[in-house]
């Protein structure tokens, strides 16, 4: 589900349109709020509060009973709702495979391409040290 949090609402919605969705209803209409982000002293020590982030959340229930939760950074309530819907669908025997195949897998691939590009650009700035040997004169 981490893949969905990294995607745009529009990308998820476009792929969901390819499925014929079962009846579902909002269990929690999208709601915006804050989550306090924590770091650790020295990177690996005791936690401390770094600062907050906006977060949107929603919950959806399928007619067949599966409940899905959607949480995402930002204030895009529709994205939270779509994530909740996907979360409910992956739990359903009828839709689980299709959601993984039609939505999550392609979005994961997109995400990996973006990450690979960023990693390659960073790698090109890696320093190759060489030692200057001082001549005897």
């Amino acid at each position: 589900m981490a893949v969905l949090a990294h995607a745009e609402a529009g990308e998820i919605a476009a792929r969901l349109r390819n499925l014929s969705l079962p009846d579902h209803q909002d269990l929690r209409t999208p709601e915006n709020g804050l989550v306090m982000l924590r770091g650790r002293v020295g990177g690996d020590g005791a936690p401390f509060n770094l600062g907050e982030a906006t977060v949107s959340r929603a919950a959806v229930r399928l007619a067949s009973g599966e409940v899905g939760f959607g949480y995402t950074l930002g204030r895009d309530g529709e994205k939270a709702r779509l994530i909740a819907l996907c979360d409910a669908l992956v739990q359903s025997r009828d839709f689980g495979g299709a959601v993984e195949r039609e939505i999550i897998a392609p979005l994961r691939e997109q995400l990996m391409v973006r990450r690979k590009q960023a990693a390659a650009a960073a790698a090109a700035t890696k320093v190759d040290f060489y030692t200057m040997v001082r001549g005897e004169g």
Partner: peptide
């Protein structure tokens, strides 16, 4: 409203 605190990154 605050939903809570994250796991430490």
């Amino acid at each position: 409203p605050r939903f809570g605190a994250s796991e430490p990154v």
